[in-house]
Amino acid sequence: MKQELRVAAYAVCVRDGAMLLARWVAKDGSRRWTLPGGGMEHGEDPYDTVIREAEEETGYAIEPLALLGVDSQRHTYPRRLGTTADFQSLRIVYEARVTGGELRYETNGSTDMAAWHPLEEVPALDRVLLVDVGLTLWRKRPAVGRTSRGAGRDGGTAAAPSPL
């Protein structure tokens, strides 16, 4: 079984009762909303990652204000040639505020749109689990920096997981 690890950093940006989200485009062409952010480059600090990724995906300059927590997801899924992958995503979640720039869409990247969504409308969006994780961390600010585990987590999915 091939073991894979992806470390990423994401921003929860809430302003005037709305949350900034980026729309992720999966390999199959499906689209779901996610937090702005993404994978760390080798040698990069997660603080710098979230700033870089948010700007790439939304056009905004952001300032991380607080570390909200870390979310870890593990998935196994089939790979080509009958092998199996054991994939773990480690997601570092920051609260951040917009400090400059203008809203724009990423081109030739993993997202195709960015938008502000009223907080009360977020639960109705087609979104990745990370959005709910980020909102929970932002609202509850758990002392240990993680959400409680429970039914509905993404573990053990049959399909290849979202990198988000």
Rank of each mutant, 00 (worst) to 15 (best):
E4K: 08
V7P: 00
A8T: 07
Y10R: 00
R15G: 08
R15Q: 15
A18N: 03
M19P: 02
L20C: 00
R23A: 01
K27T: 05
K27I: 01
G29A: 11
R32D: 07
L35T: 01
P36F: 02
G38L: 01
H42W: 13
H42C: 05
E44M: 08
Y47G: 12
Y47D: 15
V50K: 03
I51S: 02
E53L: 03
E57Y: 01
T58F: 00
I62D: 02
E63T: 11
A66V: 07
L67N: 12
G69K: 04
G69W: 01
Q73L: 11
Q73K: 10
H75L: 03
T76P: 01
R79K: 12
L81P: 02
T83W: 10
T84C: 07
A85S: 14
D86G: 04
F87P: 00
S89Q: 04
S89E: 03
I92N: 05
V93G: 01
Y94I: 07
T99G: 08
G101L: 06
E102G: 09
Y105C: 11
M113V: 07
A115I: 00
A115S: 10
W116Y: 12
P118N: 10
P123Y: 03
A124N: 14
D126E: 15
D126V: 09
L130D: 02
V131F: 06
L137I: 02
R139S: 05
K140R: 13
K140N: 14
P142Y: 06
P142R: 05
A143H: 09
V144S: 14
R146P: 05
T147A: 11
T147I: 14
S148D: 10
G150T: 06
G156N: 11
G156A: 09
A158M: 13
A158I: 12
P161R: 01
S162M: 03
L164K: 04
